[in-house]
Simulated assay, not measured.
Amino acid sequence: MLAAVLRKSEAAMHTGLRSLRSLSSLANNGSCQILKSPPLVSLDLLEDWTCRVDQDRQETASIPNPSNQLTAALIDGKAISEEIRSKIANEVNRMKSSIGKTPGLAVILVGDRRDCQIYVRNKILACEEAGIRSEVVDLRESCSEDDILSALSNFNENPEIHGVLVQLPLPERLDEGKILSMLPLEKDVDGFHPLNMGNLALKGREPLFIPCTPKGCIELLLRSGVEIYGKRAVVIGRSNIVGLPTSLLLQRYHATVTVIHALTKNPEMLAREADIVVAAVGMPNLVRKSWLKPGAVVIDVGTYPIEDSSSDQGYRLLGDVCYGEAINVASAITPVPGGVGPMTVAMLLLNTLESAKRFYDFS
Rank of each mutant, 00 (worst) to 15 (best):
G243E: 00
V166L: 09
L35P: 02
S31A: 15
H261S: 15
P245D: 05
C116F: 02
N154Y: 03
E219K: 04
L200Y: 06
D308W: 02
G131D: 09
I179A: 09
L152R: 02
K8R: 14
Q55Y: 12
S42L: 14
F155H: 10
D190S: 14
D56A: 15
T246N: 04
N29I: 08
I161G: 02
V297C: 08
A326E: 05
K123W: 00
I218C: 06
S310V: 00
C32W: 08
E10Y: 10
A12S: 12
H14F: 13
I306D: 02
L170H: 05
E219M: 08
Q167R: 01
C51H: 14
I333Q: 02
L349G: 07
S19Y: 09
E129W: 00
L149E: 05
G302Y: 02
N266C: 03
E219R: 05
I75E: 07
V137E: 10
H193E: 09
K78P: 01
S31E: 07
S363K: 13
A3M: 10
A274N: 05
S181I: 08
A346R: 04
E160W: 05
Y304N: 13
V235N: 09
N156R: 09
L263R: 14
V189P: 08
E47V: 12
I299M: 11
I84E: 02
V41N: 11
V53K: 14
A27V: 09
W49D: 14
T60Y: 04
D188N: 07
N199S: 06
V259E: 07
R205M: 13
L70C: 12
Y304L: 05
I84Q: 02
L222H: 06
L349A: 06
L249G: 11
R173H: 11
P207N: 08
K123H: 00
E141A: 13
V53N: 13
A79Q: 14
V277F: 04
L40E: 04
L20V: 13
G324D: 15
T352P: 03
G302I: 02
V259Y: 06
A79R: 13
P335Q: 04
V110C: 07
A4R: 14
G204A: 07
L152M: 14
V5M: 11
P194I: 11
V235A: 08
G16N: 05
S142I: 05
A326Q: 07
L149R: 06
Q313E: 12
V278P: 04
Y323A: 10
V136P: 01
L152F: 02
I148T: 08
S81Y: 09
S144Q: 13
